[in-house]
Design a protein around this nucleic acid. Structure first.
Lengths: 336, 336
DNA sequence: TTGAAAGCGCTAACAA
DNA sequence: TTGTTAGCGCTTTCAA
């Protein structure tokens, strides 16, 4: 492999000059810079990130920790993060916990702490006490995207307000018999989000003097499949069913929509359904929802970290990212 | 930061011994190894990947190049790759082209070639001539997952056979009026897959003496939204519509299903729909499809690369990964 | 079984 | 504007 020395020798200049020229540092004659650039290209020179990392202390890589990759929210955030990093010349090192917690120890001890990255972005997940301490003690900038983690900076929407807006949309339509399709369960271990949305639901209902029925709190696990099965039970009895369902995520709303279709329940005539997310499928499904933009959240968080790396001073605590009610065809006025 | 020297000094041994002990190399007294391990932990020692990379020439990281992250197939493959790498103590460096081609140059020149990785996994995408050469000339092991790229090793299902199986399922049910919801278009630039599936469709139809109607070749762009709109047009005229639609992907099949529901067309009574993928939503949607397992494909490819890295000799050319017809409720016998 | 020592390929003072 | 030089923190011979 051609090294910086080869380039220097080839031109009869010092390695320092080559290094400066290639990195665009000032104090290099334009003519020299041009010659260095063309020679480097000609020789097929590629700098070694190990060597420059070792010498400079900067790895030019950011770590991103996710609970799983192949879920709508996480992969969209990743997309936004990647975009920013790429533009800044940073590499993205992905650490997935892959659903189960088996990898956790390895991830935290082997890799993340392996001095391979300049900053860490953690995607909404529950961390153990030990892990949280590990993150807080990191000597490099870090931030959480999605659900908040105590004691760590955080980028995301105002989850309580988003849930509130969704439920109040339903109430504004005249609904009083409102069910909740909630996440949680196994995922409760990993996220704050389901809890926050559920509490917000109960609070709004209470604020409006509406009953929160135990048997109308259905468990959807944030998934289409689970939600559909739960909704099939929830909506089975025509005499005793809600007229609206607030879903903590769009994927769960799809499950409710599917169940309604199977049961021959007209949406929005007999049943209103609202979600949170604005998933890629929500528009063609005609789902009314609270839109959030995960890609924007990822980009914003990455940008913030990058800024800190550049200026070497902590950035302001970021305000919540915006959310927006998008009315489509799955919600309508309550009957009667 | 504590370095290997700190650990060595603390114990009164040499850095070489610490290095050997920590990496589990032979030739270290068990008692010494134990002392090194506990001291390292006690001091919170974490090896620098830059330093070890520079000294050993191995980065312990694998690059994964994807056209976009937030699509079902790609994120699932990523999940599988990550699982293998994590288990082997390797890090995963993600390079996304983010849909557009703006990043391409940066990715190929700055990062991938930046001597940061020991191997490269390319996810199905079209490479320019120059890019393909760059990949082929890489001095490290590489492989493509998904659509084949000429001259590069490849892991994936037999796409032609998968498409054929889907169409023959329809034909076996007595259908003769079969439409095709195809990908391609803007994506044609990036994938071989849509083309292969389309050619297979035409070939099977021909083999069975069935007509391929130009106006029944609908463009779905591999997406729910686009497919739904196309299907609305395709199915509009009751007197002149297909009795079955072969969709090159499940997401497009969802679009057809949605269009059928909007038009009041009974599935599978009046219309059979089959896809390829077995997307997470296909089971709850009752979609008949050809299952492939992208996570398995990713894991398999990563495993193969890891094996080469370990044994330092090229592995065999991998056979196609399996696919499977999964019959659910969206296909049925042709009427009459 | 252990240690000494020479790099790996860069960056960043400091000098010129 | 350019060069000299001393590391960065490991791994890996070679010797003991």
């Amino acid at each position: 492999m051609t090294s910086i020395d080869d380039v220097a020798a080839h031109l009869g200049v010092s390695t320092a000059t080559v290094s400066r020229a290639l990195r665009g540092l000032p104090g290099v004659a334009e003519e020299t810079r041009a010659r260095v650039n063309s020679t480097a290209k000609e020789l097929g020179y590629v700098p070694s990130s190990s060597a420059s990392g070792l010498a400079s202390g900067r790895t030019m890589a950011m770590g991103v920790l996710v609970p799983v990759i192949d879920r709508w929210y996480f992969s969209a955030v990743l997309e936004g993060v990647d975009r920013q990093l790429r533009a800044a010349g940073y590499d993205l090192i992905l650490f997935s916990l892959g659903g189960d917690g088996v990898n956790r120890d390895r991830v935290f001890h082997r890799s993340i702490l392996r001095k391979r990255i300049d900053a860490l972005l953690v995607m909404s997940m529950h961390l153990t006490e030990e892990e949280r301490k590990a993150v807080q003690q990191l000597e490099y900038p870090n931030i959480v995207v999605g659900g908040a983690v105590e004691g760590v900076r955080h980028v995301g929407i105002d989850d309580a307000k988003a849930a509130r807006d969704a439920v109040e949309h339903l109430i504004g339509l005249g609904h009083t018999r409102i069910a909740h399709m909630r996440g949680g369960g196994s995922f409760d271990i990993d996220f704050q989000v389901p809890r926050i949305r559920q509490q917000a639901f109960q609070q709004v209902m209470e604020d409006h003097g509406l009953p929160v029925r135990e048997d109308w709190s259905a468990f959807g696990d944030f998934r289409f499949t689970t939600s559909r099965v739960s909704a099939l039970a929830l909506l089975a009895d025509p005499a005793n069913r809600p007229t609206a369902v607030f879903c903590s995520s769009d994927e769960m709303a799809f499950g409710v929509l599917k169940a309604a279709a199977e049961l021959g329940i007209d949406v929005p005539g007999e049943l209103s359904v609202i979600g949170i997310d604005d998933h890629e499928f929500s528009e063609p499904m005609g789902l009314t929802t609270i839109r959030q933009d995960p890609e924007d959240q990822g980009a914003y968080a990455a940008e913030l970290l990058l800024g800190e790396l550049l200026r070497n001073e902590p950035a302001d605590y970021p305000p919540p990212r915006p959310h927006l009610l998008v009315e489509r065809h799955s919600t309508g006025p309550a009957r009667g």
